[in-house]
Amino acid sequence: MNLLFIFIISFLSIETPGINGYQPGDKATDFSLKSITGKMVSMADYKDARGFIVVFTCNHCPFAVMYQDRINELAKKYTPKGYVLLAVNPNDPAVQPADSYAFMQERAKEKGFVFPYLFDEGQKVYPQYGATKTPHAFLLDRNLIVKYIGAIDDNAEDASLAKEKYLENAIMSLENGTDPVPSITKAIGCSIKVKKS
């Protein structure tokens, strides 16, 4: 009986498709998430935004760490142009203690983050977006239509060697009123940490 049960469970886990998230062209849902300052942040708070850069990222993942300065630079560069960068930590700190709210505050202070660093408490937001890893970037236009999903650029290890700056190119396309090409890219990253059911 037990064996049969295990067999069924393992079968289910094989056949279950991945999380369905957004595709370019979909309308993203706004959220209300707690920032490291304690303030709740929503996209609706930014009435004059030209677009939103939502980056699922975290403290612990080496890939995310390699991009944290680049994300900060993006925020510095595009905030004056009307883009709002929101970083969201989707991990459950019970699984990865380094991704706790307190450590988020510490990291933001240490790195001088100029963007809101938000905590997806209860892990409700990342599945809606279909984020599967950190870092995982989403570019939305002012009406929250998804324009780009994927990597920030094509060289995690060395920013200066990046040939394709996917996310910045997508912002450029949005500025020019065209759809980004590519609109989806893939990169290796850390899986989002979720408690096992």
């Binding site: 599967t132 094509d154 893939k186 290796i188 850390c190």
Partner: peptide, 19 residues
């Protein structure tokens, strides 16, 4: 390290998260 060029060749459904 040009991940975007080959991840989908392993599998269309792979987002790039490991394991």
């Amino acid at each position: 390290k040009n991940f975007n060029s080959w991840i989908s060749e392993i599998d269309e459904s792979w987002s790039g998260a490991i394991p």
